[in-house]
């Protein structure tokens, strides 16, 4: 399956654009490629959480692959885990 690369600088500006991109892929299973993320803010985490809820409501799966170190650090910094972003997890 084709994976969507997350922006390298995933800040407030990138969030809106990526939200639109994501919505275009709604209704189908999706994979997010987090390997290129160098910097990520809280709003980006929130958007991904929101996306997970959407995918869950739609009954589709959303997963993250190749999470970069900065990506994981950001997620943990706000008290979240990758399960907040991927569907099918226990959270």
């Amino acid at each position: 399956m084709h994976a969507l690369p997350l922006p390298e600088t995933f800040d407030r500006k990138a969030v809106s654009a990526f939200a639109r991109t994501l919505l275009d892929h709604r209704g189908a299973d999706a994979v997010l490629d987090a390997s290129g993320v160098q910097r990520m803010g809280t709003l980006a985490v929130e958007m991904l959480i929101s996306a997970r809820k959407q995918w869950q409501t739609d009954g589709k799966t959303l997963s993250v692959r190749d999470a970069s170190e900065p990506f994981l650090t950001a997620i943990e910094a706000v008290g979240a885990s990758v399960d907040h972003i991927q569907t099918g997890g226990p959270a």
């Binding site: 407030r12 969030v15 809106s16 939200a19 994501l22 919505l23 709604r26 709003l43 929130e46 958007m47 959480i49 929101s50 996306a51 809820k53 959407q54 869950q56 409501t57 706000v78 008290g79 979240a80 907040h84």
Partner: peptide, 15 residues
């Protein structure tokens, strides 16, 4: 402890 309860699904979400 993060609370994401009120985060809306993406179609209704706004930054």
């Amino acid at each position: 402890v993060m609370n994401d309860e009120s985060v809306a699904p993406l179609e209704d979400w706004s930054p």
